[in-house]
Design a protein around this nucleic acid. Structure first.
Lengths: 331, 331
DNA sequence: TTGTAAGCGTTATCAT
DNA sequence: ATGATAACGCTTACAA
């Protein structure tokens, strides 16, 4: 492995000088800069990131915490988009990232998690879909020992930013549009996410507002973002409701397939705008969001935190629409 | 951050002794071992993995190279399963992993790629679906500077193992089963993967064997594992063929949806057994494989290489079946 | 069995 | 503007 010493020797300077060139210090003559750059080029030298990380006073390494504990399978699609978005930004900013699955932290306590993260020199976190059961992560956010960006959880503090769409208005819009497309709506089944979750409550609020406005009976059941549960809930409550609003596309798919088996029709709408929707060939309203972009934005927010800005909330755009097979497969 | 020095101080021993305890050296008295372990426990000490990596003579860090350049979208599902499988094994073996997307290496030359990997202290690679265009990776495998495990590419040498199913017999079986379920088969459209790829060729061989046996005309088109291309190919050749065999489920879905639009029926079979299949509600034969398990097996093979074994080829099981919605959503 | 000290490849603080 | 040198946190001869 070619090291900084090799470069220094070849360029005929001290390794500290090489380091200065590499980190573009101002106080270095044009002549030596060229010598060093030539040596770097010729040797194909790339700094050892491990050594850099160990030696640097401030070194940023971000942990991406992805939640894949949902029983449903197609969280894959979303998680993968989150990861690719973050990876691209990481490359752009030249910041190292490490991927974790939140289930890894389940058996640990708060102290263990922080020790574990710090032992990997991680000082920043991007947490996707923080779930309410994860007490450790909540505590980490609260204690502000790490710079955090939360995707789809509305917590902010000095060192914590959040990025999400406006769950209230999005849920309101998609539900309203779906209900208004139909004539008699006097009883609506709302299949919510996980009981007590932030976004779940925000969306529930939206449903309650709509309920007041449109004056229907609202049945609320918790499907935990799980399509199988949504299916069961639909079997139980589908008949007596005349529309079903779901807090995720996956649950909406579960509901629609249940309805088909029950051989009844009810308008259904989802939330997320996953591509899987296109494959089911069921045209239903949903809230379409760009997960890749959301993740990139989260990274941008993280960068701001690293640059000394205080944590803030950022809202991202969404679109109420139907997911079409051709749109999904085209690109 | 609590370091090895803190532990040493607290336990009243030298830091080298702490290190010995941590790495379970034999020559350490029970008494000091206990003292050290107590201190570690009380301080919640976790070794700094960056420092460990820098100082260890042999330190294993594996790069997971995932290919997401396919235009088709649902490679997500497969890649994510690969990643989770590898991550679980990494935790089990206590080996660090770093994720890369192969597209990152596109603009680099061979020297740059190796320098880049080495600068991150990576000495092992698990390469998923090595595509034929990736000259750099081929050269890396050939030069044997890294321990490599290839998933679904049949190259092996002293430091390279491969893990895959038997593409020849799997393709043969699924195609045969599909064709035999139907009566008149005299012209078969085979939508292959990427021209020149290893697995593509193996599968083509299987189709040729079947062609000889069943005596039909074989039309071969390359769909590049892309569902859109498969769709176009089907529009062009679907009518004149009386069965379509596809080298991936995604292409099979593209073909079936095209057939539906053409309003004709042709038996179609796929390859991979992705869960997405269950959502399309189209029952078609496919080769089902467990990607998560395959990735785990690849990691096991990597471990063997690290333990000094020579590279070898391992075959994994598969099953010819149909993917059912209920199986997909149940779990 | 334990401790001392050199080394891993960098950065950063001093002198010069 | 450049070069020694100490530090980063750990492992590992080697000495005791």
């Amino acid at each position: 492995m070619v090291s900084i010493n090799d470069v220094a020797k070849k360029a005929g300077v001290a390794k500290s000088t090489v380091s200065k060139v590499l980190n573009n210090y101002s106080l270095v003559s044009e002549e030596t800069r060229l010598k060093v750059e030539k040596a770097v080029e010729e040797l194909g030298y790339v700094p050892n990131s491990v050594a850099v990380s160990l030696s640097k006073k401030v070194f940023n390494r971000v942990g991406l915490i992805v939640d894949i504990r949902h029983n449903s399978q197609f969280v894959d699609e979303i998680s993968m988009q989150y990861l690719t978005g973050a990876f691209e930004k990481a490359k752009e900013y030249q910041i190292e990232v490490v991927t974790f699955f939140s289930s890894q932290f389940d058996e640990m306590n708060y102290k263990q998690v922080t020790a574990y993260l710090k032992s990997q020199r991680i000082n920043c976190l991007i947490i996707y879909n923080l779930s309410i059961e994860n007490k450790n992560l909540y505590k980490i956010i609260e204690k502000q020992e790490f710079n955090c960006v939360l995707v789809d959880s509305p917590i902010t503090n000095d060192r914590t930013s959040s990025v999400s769409l406006d769950h209230f208005s999005a849920q309101y819009e998609v539900a309203k549009k779906t209900l208004e497309e139909n004539i008699y709506i006097d009883r609506v089944l709302y299949i919510a996410g996980g009981a007590g979750g932030y976004i779940t409550n925000r969306r529930l609020d939206a449903m309650r507002k709509l309920q007041e406005e449109l004056d229907f009976e609202l049945i609320v059941e918790y499907g935990d973002f799980n399509e199988y549960k949504a299916r069961e809930i639909t079997f139980k409550n589908g008949e007596k409701s005349n529309a079903i609003v779901c807090a995720s596309d996956l649950m909406a798919i579960g509901a629609v397939f249940a309805l088909i088996e029950m051989d009844i029709y009810r308008p259904v709408c989802g939330f997320d705008g996953i591509r899987l929707m296109g494959y089911t060939k069921i045209a239903m309203n949903t809230v379409k969001q760009n997960f890749n972009l959301k993740s990139k934005q989260a990274f941008d927010e993280l960068k701001k935190l690293l640059d000394g800005e205080k944590g803030q909330h950022t809202e991202i755009p969404y679109e109420v629409c139907k997911i079409d097979y051709m749109d999904v497969i085209q690109k």
